[in-house]
């Protein structure tokens, strides 16, 4: 343990300032949702109101965007979790140049700007449609294309998480099961997957959130559909009203509840492990 220094209070102060810097803007934005002023702000304070929440609730376009966001996020999780898990298993059992090349190709989408992913996905599927001479809806921009674009980099997050978990896997278990007459699918279902579940769960959660807050890829691939981020963006650009702040406050509260819930589960699990 490091001894206490006389300069430590400076660090404490810095941490407090940084936390304020991170959180105060969110509080200001949330607070503006209750201000009875047509332009969203906390200053000057005109008076308390809940009308922005009422207006938001009545906004059909918002509900539509909300539903679209959830559909896309669920589809992204459903596709990227199997892909990311499979890719991690493949990467884990090969070596040499093939491994480095494959690995580079897999992490490249994380390091690619979202706009590039969006545009290349849009152009590619459009091109496939033209080549096939087909007007089939799958080749036109739309939410399904946003899903494909998002999967291309969210699968990489899942892959990295599962790969990290695979490092702590004891291969001997697999071999023992095979020697004792288990089939390959039994080994997969009863031994490998249970070991990977924590990473798969974390991957699914991260993928879900990443998809909900994605904007860059969605903007280029969405066609005429709205998602929540696109909805907020277009509202801010055109008719800015404090309903956005009401929506922001709801989203922040949801995030907060999710984070606190996760933390409670984590601490309970830790205590259980410590109690063993």
């Amino acid at each position: 343990m490091r001894q206490v220094r006389s300069t430590d209070w400076l660090f404490h102060l810095y941490l407090v300032l940084f936390l304020a810097y991170m959180l105060v803007p969110l509080i200001v934005m949330g607070g503006a949702a209750f201000n009875d002023s047509r332009f969203p702000s906390v200053y000057p304070w005109v008076g308390w109101t809940d009308r922005w929440f009422v207006e938001l609730w009545a906004d059909k376009r918002m509900w539509n965007a909300f539903a679209n966001t959830i559909y896309v996020a669920l589809a992204v999780v459903a596709i990227s979790v199997p892909i990311g898990t499979a890719a991690a298993i493949v990467i884990n059992s090969i070596a040499g140049t093939t491994r480095s090349v494959l690995y580079a190709l897999m992490v490249a989408p994380i390091l690619t700007p979202g706009a590039v992913i969006g545009i290349s996905t849009l152009l590619f599927w459009n091109g496939v449609g033209n080549a096939a001479g087909s007007e089939f809806f799958l080749f036109k921009a739309g939410l399904h294309m946003s899903v494909l674009g998002q999967v291309s980099f969210i699968a990489a997050f899942v892959m990295l998480l599962v790969l990290a978990r695979l490092q702590s896997f004891d291969r001997g278990l697999e071999e023992a099961a095979l020697d004792l007459g288990a089939s390959h699918s039994q080994v997969m279902r009863r031994i490998l997957l249970p070991h990977l579940y924590p990473a798969i769960g974390a991957g699914a959660a991260i993928g879900f959130f990443q998809s909900i807050e994605n904007f860059n890829v969605t903007l280029f691939t969405r066609g005429t559909y709205d998602t929540l981020t696109v909805y907020v963006f277009s509202k801010v650009r055109t008719g800015i009203t404090p309903t956005i702040n009401a929506l922001a406050l709801i989203m922040i509260t949801a995030t907060l509840l999710g984070a606190v819930g996760y933390e409670i589960i984590r601490r309970r699990r830790e205590r259980r492990l410590a109690g063993r």
């Binding site: 969110l26 904007f215 981020t229 907020v232 801010v236 989203m251 922040i252 995030t255 984070a259």
Partner: peptide, 14 residues
Amino acid sequence: FIPLWVSEVLRSFA
């Protein structure tokens, strides 16, 4: 983690 999970569009809006 809270600001990290709040979407980029809202953070710039703030």
